[in-house]
Design a protein around this nucleic acid. Structure first.
Lengths: 195, 195
DNA sequence: CATCTAACTGAACAATCGTTCATTTGAAAA
DNA sequence: TTTTCAAATGAACGATTGTTCAGTTAGATG
């Protein structure tokens, strides 16, 4: 047997990334073998190398794709207006973008140490760009006099950690619906930087 | 060669745990081999099995030790008084306990998925106990009327995520000294739950 | 000094790892 | 219908994995 029924590169390729994402999110990069990924896709391990030069590139592609998607979506969100509106927009954006992508969040925040230095730097640069978007809002709020943030960089890291932490415990169909949780987090964010 | 100069079980035993902690924190549980740990200690891989029945127990021991130490220290902190004082005490305690233990924090928050179910449950129970300590403070503040927290459970998770996130980016000798950072985080915490 | 044994070595085990590649297959093109 | 070739297979590579264990040794004990 070789090519299977209905098997094409434009089908198998994405399925490799999907399988890798789910497996790595659950068990970790080092704990997942190429054979496990292949089995999930329904091919032999060798076939994966039609779609990735090696395992490391697979991880990097997953993380880069997540970050590019994040930055694109943020740009499209087009947060304008006064600082308070922008902060609310950012909070909503962050929650709505990350909550349906728990696997990506897991991988992007847990597997950084498994990237080779060059790939690590690339991801870190994009992450920094995202953080800077929030910090700029906090700075604007300081300038407007509507925020009281002793150190915008520290506050940025603190708020992003708080918001991202949501992805680690939120489960669909849990005690609280998403809009409720969104409101709770916005209250916490808003008050924490208030004058 | 067998027993080395000055080599004793009460010396080698702790060194195994120290080496495992540092290596797992840097590279992850699955990526670290028993031979790497042994090399760090200065023995052969087989010698490790005088100190742990298997690799999984090594990981579990590290995480259990961290949680036991955390809960003991919290109990000893003996946070009393009004809710605001207790919240300040908890915030200070959390930061001061976790900041000098970045390896333990890394392992305890990243390697949960590598615990077998029974060990996972044991750690999760202790973690829940710690979370409940904070939630009780938030509840008390609600009762006193000094906190305005729509959902104490969500706020608990949000605040712990914010505080623990500090361990992920803080580096000794960085731009800001620890007392300064502590003050910034306390401001954020205090305001976020304020009425 | 002789004895004992905890602590270690070093080789071995089967299993699994990432990766390569000659070969085979089947769907699309001619 | 025949030809073509992208997309697979499946076997193989050397390296490494966690773990076991018979044998060795150095420090404590008598």
């Amino acid at each position: 047997m070789a090519r299977k029924q209905g098997s094409h590169s434009e089908i198998t390729g994405p399925r490799v990334l999907e399988a890798a994402l789910r497996l790595i999110a659950r068990h970790g990069y080092a704990a997942v073998s190429m054979r496990q990924i292949a089995a999930e896709v329904g091919v032999q391990a060798g076939a994966l190398y039609n779609y990735t030069p090696d395992k490391q590139s697979l991880l990097f592609d997953l993380m880069r794709h997540h970050m590019v998607e994040l930055l694109d979506a943020l740009a499209e969100a087009d947060l304008t207006g006064d600082a308070l509106s922008r902060l609310k927009g950012f909070t909503q954006f962050h929650i709505r973008f990350h909550l349906p992508r728990s696997d990506q969040v897991f991988v992007s925040y847990m597997e950084l140490r498994n990237l080779v230095p060059q790939n690590f730097t690339a991801i870190e640069t994009m992450r920094r760009e995202y953080e800077d978007a929030l910090e700029n809002i906090l700075r604007a709020g300081e300038a407007e006099g509507v925020f009281a943030v002793p150190d915008t960089r520290v506050a940025t890291m603190a708020l992003i950690a708080m918001l991202t932490g949501l992805s680690h415990w939120y489960r669909e169909g849990g005690r609280l619906a998403m809009p409720v949780i969104e409101q709770i987090y916005w209250d916490l964010v808003r008050k924490s930087v208030a004058v």
